[in-house]
Write a protein that binds this DNA or RNA. Structure first.
Length: 114
DNA sequence: CCTGTGACATAAG
DNA sequence: CCTTATGCCACAG
């Protein structure tokens, strides 16, 4: 089995794990970092298996608007929000406040040179 | 190879 | 604000 095959999912997990405490990022940002900017949905799908699996903090991954679109995949109704608030992030009605301050762009922070 | 799917993103009504 | 529709892409069966 070739590592290239799992590359995408693997990278998704890797990046998600790299998200610093109290920071969030978007599916699109991760996808872009992976070199597949238009596969944001794949990122979400990957998270589908990551939630509760791996050590992936899926709750730190939100959509571009800072909306907790994936909260439905968590256990409770507001578990995702609780986790984020636990990290010092203000969340109101599934919407991250001051997203600008909490946003963590992998491509930017990691500044990798492909 | 073809079909279905998915936690997005964007556009249109 | 809402719902639909489309694109887009990688993976599973």
């Amino acid at each position: 089995m070739k590592p290239e095959n799992q590359n995408f999912f693997h990278k998704v997990y890797e990046v998600a794990k790299l998200i610093p405490f109290g920071r969030v990022t978007s599916y699109g940002a991760i996808a872009k970092y992976l070199g597949a900017a238009r596969s944001a949905r794949m990122v979400g799908w990957a998270m589908n298996g990551a939630g509760g699996m791996e050590d992936v903090p899926a709750h730190r991954v939100v959509n571009k608007a800072g909306l907790l679109t994936g909260k439905h995949h968590f256990d409770g109704t507001n578990l995702m929000q609780q986790l984020l608030e636990n990290e010092g992030i203000v969340v109101i009605d599934n919407q991250i406040q001051n997203l600008d301050k909490h946003f963590w762009d992998p491509g930017k922070e990691l500044a990798e040179d492909f």
